[in-house]
């Protein structure tokens, strides 16, 4: 049996934490969800995570901050940012920062799939 790749979702919103992991599972991935970056970092699955789906704006450590922190730790986990706000300048900025993709909520499953492909494709 192939080990499913772990995709970790970090979002302070409950609906996202509820719904996204299920979709990811349907897409064939393993999924975990945390409500904050700090929680994730404090957890044991940092190393196991093969891809992060990060909300940009979160109280405390934001998504980009977590990304920078991980890179500082030389943990180059591919990151897909998702955001409920922001304008057309957000995505380029995130990509520049090294994200695999940046999606605006609400996003379709097709969009998610494409982003995941990029993220794992990079690898």
């Amino acid at each position: 049996m192939t080990t499913q790749l772990l995709v970790t979702v970090i979002d302070d919103d409950e609906s996202v934490r509820e719904s996204l992991p299920d979709l990811l599972k349907e897409l064939g991935y393993a999924a975990q969800a945390f409500s904050s970056a700090e929680e994730f970092l404090a957890s044991e699955i940092v190393e196991q995570t093969r891809c992060l789906i990060l909300d940009i704006a979160m109280p405390g450590m934001t998504g980009p901050e977590l990304h920078r922190e991980l890179m500082r730790r030389n943990n180059n986990i591919p990151v897909i940012f998702v955001t409920a706000q922001g304008d057309e300048s957000t995505r380029p900025k995130m990509l520049e920062q090294g994200a695999a993709d940046c999606l605006s909520k609400p996003f379709s499953d097709a969009a998610l799939l494409a982003a995941l492909t990029v993220a794992f494709g990079v690898n």
């Binding site: 919103d13 409950e14 996202v16 719904s19 299920d22 979709l23 605006s104 909520k105 379709s108 499953d109």
Partner: peptide
Amino acid sequence: LTASIAHEISQPLSGIVTNSSTCLRM
């Protein structure tokens, strides 16, 4: 308020979309 309101709307919307996609696959 975009941060919070857009946030607020897009959250449930996002949930709806995601859940619907999941539902279909299931």
